[in-house]
Simulated assay, not measured.
Amino acid sequence: MHSHQTVSDVVAAQIRRHRERLGMNRNDLAAECARLGRPDITYAVIVSIETGRADGGGKQRRRPVTVDDLLVLGLALATPPLLLMLPLGSEGQVPTVPAADPRDPYTVWQWMTGEARPTLDGPIDGRYFADSREFAGTGQTWASAWGTAAYPVSLYPELARRREAARKTRLRAALDPSAQTEYVDRLDELAQVVNDMVRACLTVPDLPTELAEDLKRLELLDAPTQPNRRDHE
Results as ranks from 00 to 15, higher is better:
residue 232 H to E: 15
residue 75 L to T: 11
residue 189 E to H: 10
residue 189 E to Q: 11
residue 57 G to V: 11
residue 21 R to L: 14
residue 14 Q to I: 05
residue 116 A to H: 04
residue 34 A to Y: 07
residue 122 G to A: 12
residue 3 S to E: 09
residue 178 S to N: 14
residue 23 G to Y: 07
residue 209 T to I: 04
residue 120 L to Q: 02
residue 144 S to R: 15
residue 228 N to H: 13
residue 55 D to V: 03
residue 79 T to A: 03
residue 46 I to Q: 00
residue 126 G to D: 10
residue 65 V to K: 01
residue 84 L to K: 02
residue 174 A to L: 13
residue 223 A to I: 07
residue 193 V to P: 02
residue 177 P to Y: 13
residue 49 I to N: 01
residue 112 M to L: 12
residue 45 V to E: 05
residue 230 R to A: 14
residue 51 T to G: 03
residue 69 D to P: 02
residue 207 L to K: 00
residue 205 P to S: 06
residue 145 A to T: 13
residue 10 V to I: 12
residue 83 L to A: 05
residue 105 P to M: 02
residue 86 L to V: 09
residue 169 T to N: 01
residue 176 D to T: 11
residue 209 T to C: 13
residue 150 A to L: 06
residue 141 T to Q: 12
residue 170 R to M: 09
residue 38 R to C: 03
residue 152 P to R: 03
residue 125 D to R: 15
residue 37 G to N: 06
residue 51 T to M: 07
residue 88 L to S: 06
residue 67 V to I: 09
residue 172 R to H: 06
residue 158 E to R: 01
residue 160 A to W: 05
residue 104 D to T: 07
residue 18 H to K: 04
residue 64 P to K: 09
residue 212 A to M: 13
residue 219 E to Y: 07
residue 73 L to V: 09
residue 119 T to R: 02
residue 107 T to S: 01
residue 35 R to C: 02
residue 193 V to A: 08
residue 61 R to M: 09
residue 54 A to G: 07
residue 226 Q to G: 05
residue 94 V to N: 00
residue 196 D to P: 06
residue 16 R to P: 01
residue 158 E to C: 01
residue 73 L to A: 00
residue 181 T to K: 14
residue 175 L to G: 11
residue 103 R to L: 09
residue 75 L to S: 09
residue 151 Y to E: 08
residue 186 R to E: 13
residue 175 L to K: 14
residue 7 V to Q: 09
residue 188 D to I: 13
residue 203 T to F: 12
residue 183 Y to G: 00
residue 73 L to R: 00
residue 34 A to K: 13
residue 211 L to M: 08
residue 90 S to R: 15
residue 146 W to P: 01
residue 37 G to M: 04
residue 104 D to E: 14
residue 177 P to A: 06
residue 104 D to S: 07
